[in-house]
Amino acid sequence: MSDEVILQVKDLKTYFTVDEGIVKAVDGVSFDLHRGETLGIVGESGSGKSVTNLSIINLISTPPGKIVGGEVLFHGKDLLKMSQNEIREIRGNKISMIFQDPMTSLNPFLRISTQMIETIMLHQKIDKKAAKEKAIEMLKLAGIPAPEKRIDQYPHQFSGGMRQRVMIAMALSCNPEILIADEPTSALDVTIQAQILELMRELTRKLGTAVILITHSLGVVAGMCDTICVMYAGRIVERGRTEQIFESPRHPYTQGLIHSVPRLDQETKDRLYSIPGQPPNVIDLPDCCPFYPRCEKAMDICRKKYPPVTSFEHNQSASCWLYAKETQNV
């Protein structure tokens, strides 16, 4: 992993206006991504993972959403301040995305060739024939058998796993610097999940692509990621190198997550642990630690003020009153 930071997210805030009030889906998220790094973003459903990543390439639809603050610096240039034309040059080219559901993420009415070629031609300024060759090559890399034939077929003629391979081939076809994969395997069969993750890892290593991998499951990130950010209610509550997070999770939420990962090396006598309670409603959240209703270690202060960030060794950090200097002084 190089120490060159290619993407810097600073205090990103994305809110949605809905009838009930303002949803603070992402509320002050910051992280850095290095060249070739694989960063995992983990969190429960609704914690703001997808919104964070859509905000990075400025794809939040307004209304109802709006990026209300922060910066997303790509090689030092703020993507959020770019014109539509400029950011389109980045999308699919320098930063590309793969989505959760391969069954719905490909246009069912267009041939695979059409969908792949249009991206390649758009960004690489090559003619149709060359673009098609490139597309076939990418499909081959992605492990699609007989790509010359398959490329002229429609999505419905592919299985789910195959489609996700197509998505990966398409996303990597312009050799992006960053691949954002938003739960790329959660809609797939368990056996296929592993294959897809393996394919992603192999291809991105080969091409030197940095990856932001979004997932519910710590199990997935464990094998894939260099670094992990844990999100809860629109904020990153803990971050650190993967080994560190698994070895010494600091935040009670991270601890709960790790506790709930099924482990092959332990006999599970009891039922699998799961964090009690529901993720909070992020509408009109008061100033507090949003985890306190579910936290076994909650203190008085936790419901009065959002905890500050505490840093630990090896660049690990967490937002929890348990470690804040203020509480320790009291």
């Binding site: 993420s105 490909l106 246009n107 009415f109 267009l110 249009e118 991206t119 960004h123």
Partner: peptide, 25 residues
């Protein structure tokens, strides 16, 4: 729909998104 999000994430112009990806479906 998801595939329109994909089309946009690929960097297509809004007009291309509408004419090529939205209308047919």
């Amino acid at each position: 729909s998801d595939y329109i999000r994909t089309a946009r994430a690929k960097g297509l112009k809004e007009s291309a998104v509408v004419w090529k990806h939205v209308l047919k479906g």
